[in-house]
């Protein structure tokens, strides 16, 4: 589904990703862990198509297509979703109107008509229940005045609405208390299927107790320095990142 080969990317003269290789297949959950500043969030943004980052070498391939010339919205239409670490506040546009616009734009890109209003309402109801979201919440301006937890839950609600093939969760666990974490993780698990894949980017092992990864990768200084199974996350939690840093140097 997603094949990243020798990916180098950065801003201006500063290289942040220094040769990432990653293969994600349908039905898999990958966790990417690493210390602050290692390039985790940059990788997420680059996959989603943020133009601030320039790809200097290597490639990202999604379902057989090179993504280099593909705009962020087209990537979304193809089924890539990024749950933001810091979702942006958009005053004046309600969550519902935002979702209507997003869904209908994706449909338009696929040559479909707008989703009928009653179908849209049904979908919104179903998905908001899945994430235990209050209906009143949906008429509020997008992310405006939302607590950290509400923002993250709203991200996963959007993911549920858009039903992506590949979801990248960028530090979705940060700012969440344990109850909110359970709701979010539960939502992600319910959306999982053999046809879609999830990349969980996190600093801590905590979220991985709820979303069980098939693979864990550790990123350091723009490279994946170690890959393994879920046990690797536990080991990291135990020994800390310094252990790996030392190991890499050695």
């Amino acid at each position: 589904m997603l094949t990243i080969k020798d990916l180098h990317a950065g801003v201006e003269d500063k290289e942040i990703l220094k040769g990432i290789n990653l293969e994600v297949k349908p039905g898999e959950v990958h966790a990417i862990m690493g210390p602050n500043g290692s390039g985790k969030s940059t990788l997420a943004s680059v996959i989603a198509g943020k133009e601030d980052f320039e790809i200097t070498k290597g490639s990202i391939n999604f379902e057989g297509e090179d993504l280099e010339e593909v705009s962020p919205e087209e990537r979304a239409h193809k089924g890539i979703f990024l749950s933001f670490q810091y979702p942006v506040e958009i005053p004046g546009v309600s969550v519902t109107n935002f979702m209507k616009t997003a869904i209908n734009e994706s449909r338009k890109a696929r040559g479909m008509d707008d989703m009928p209003a009653n179908e849209m309402l049904k979908l919104i109801r179903e998905k908001s229940e899945l994430l235990d979201i209050d209906r009143k919440f949906l008429s509020r301006s997008l992310n405006e005045g939302f607590s950290g937890g509400e923002k993250k839950r709203n991200e996963i609600f959007q993911m549920a609405m858009l039903e992506p093939k590949l979801a990248i969760l960028d530090e979705t666990d940060s700012g969440l208390d344990i109850d909110a974490l359970r709701i979010v993780a539960n939502g992600v698990n319910k959306l999982k299927s053999k046809d879609n894949a999830v990349i969980v980017i996190t600093h801590y092992q905590r979220l991985l107790e709820y979303i069980i990864p098939d693979f864990v990768h550790v990123i350091h200084d723009g490279k994946i320095v170690k890959s393994g199974t879920k046990e690797l996350a536990l080991e990291l939690e135990d020994k800390g990142y310094d252990w790996l840093k030392k190991e890499t140097v050695a």
Binding site: A48, S71, V88, I90, V93, T101, E105
Partner: peptide, 25 residues
């Protein structure tokens, strides 16, 4: 904000308009 909207499948032109709308709202 534009990237956020685009990443949800809203084309840049429409995303721009949506932000303008929000601005004038």
């Amino acid at each position: 904000a534009l990237f956020y909207l685009q990443s949800r499948g809203i084309p840049r032109k429409e995303a721009t308009a949506l932000l303008m709308y929000a601005f004038a709202n």
